Computed example of a mutant assay.
Amino acid sequence: MMTTPAPDPMMVAAATDFDAAGTPEHEPNLERGGFRAVWWRHALALLALAFALFPIVFVVSAALNPAGSLSTTSLFPTGFSMSNVRTLFSDEARPFVTWYKNSLIIAFVGGLLSVFIGACAAYAFSRLRFKGRRVGLMALLLLQMFPALLAFVGLYITFSKVGEVLPAFGLNTIAGLILVYLGGAMGSNVWLLKGYFDTVPKELDEAAMVDGASHARIFFTMTLRLVTPILVTVFMLAFVGLFGEFMLASIFLTDKDAQTLGVGLWGMTKGNERNALFGQFAAGSVLSAIPIMVLYLVFQRQLVGGLTQGSVK
């Protein structure tokens, strides 16, 4: 009759210690301390949120203030009235609707043209090999370091002379202002787009060229579809920048009917009526944020993908 050998006491002790350490009941408590250990993080987050929401709450309160003046505006609204909005749209001395339309036209057309020109240049720098390629890229990068304020005088003189030959593209015209914006947005857009174009495999272009496709057909029918996130990202950045641009718009557009939203609202804060017009100014500021908010909500996924995918790949 066979007998089972007695287990080794040392092995039993080692197995017991392993089971005790491996069971979930004996795992260390990673949340020891609870809220007391991370309270300062929540405090900093709330402080940053309050700092960011303060001007928004104040402007919304001023827009809803029935009195519509700066002296009677408080941080939290004491009343609710849409009189400032109605007065803003009905004031014939200040064409708010025209300002809004001009800003949308400049931002939308300028954004689309910036994306198209930047995409064409980025595709050439990314896919084609030609003499002066690196020099051109470095020139675009160095031009971005040039202070833009120093070019305003030269741009003003240049477009004042252009207006004598081509009045549609001179000073006080939306088309002339869009041309200035397109020249200033080339550098950053080309570098941003080129970095994303480089992530698209070149084997796709080679396979299409074997089938007889030209560079233009590859670019318009295949490459642009693959880089849609970065195109949306560049359009969003261009739209936001052009919609709220003030310096060049205030220099080029002097006629009241040709002004943009930023220039027109800035004019309401000057003069003896700035206290009485503060409610309308706040209402116009709130309404001016609607297009940007809508675009961010609609293209949020493409915007995040365009900013992250190119750098990760």
Rank of each mutant, 00 (worst) to 15 (best):
P167F: 01
G184K: 08
N189D: 13
L137K: 05
S188Q: 13
N172M: 05
D198S: 12
P147D: 07
L204D: 05
S160D: 11
L149I: 14
A151D: 00
G154Y: 11
L226G: 06
A185L: 09
G195D: 02
N172Q: 05
L226K: 14
K161P: 00
L224C: 03
E203N: 13
T158H: 03
L155Y: 13
G184N: 11
G187M: 07
G195H: 05
L226Q: 13
F152G: 01
G136P: 05
L182K: 10
G187S: 14
R133P: 00
L171Q: 10
G132K: 11
T158V: 09
P201F: 00
V210D: 08
M186A: 14
S160R: 15
L192P: 01
F219K: 01
Y196T: 05
S214E: 02
L141G: 10
A151F: 03
L140Q: 07
T221D: 10
D198H: 09
H215A: 09
S188L: 14
G154E: 03
T221S: 15
P167A: 01
I174M: 09
G136L: 06
V135S: 11
L155A: 09
V190T: 12
D211A: 11
I178L: 07
E206W: 13
V135N: 08
A208C: 12
G184T: 09
V165C: 00
L224R: 08
G195Q: 04
L140S: 08
V210N: 07
N189P: 03
R133Q: 13
Y196G: 04
G212E: 07
D205T: 14
A168L: 13
A213V: 13
N172P: 05
P201R: 07
V162E: 02
R225E: 00
R225D: 01
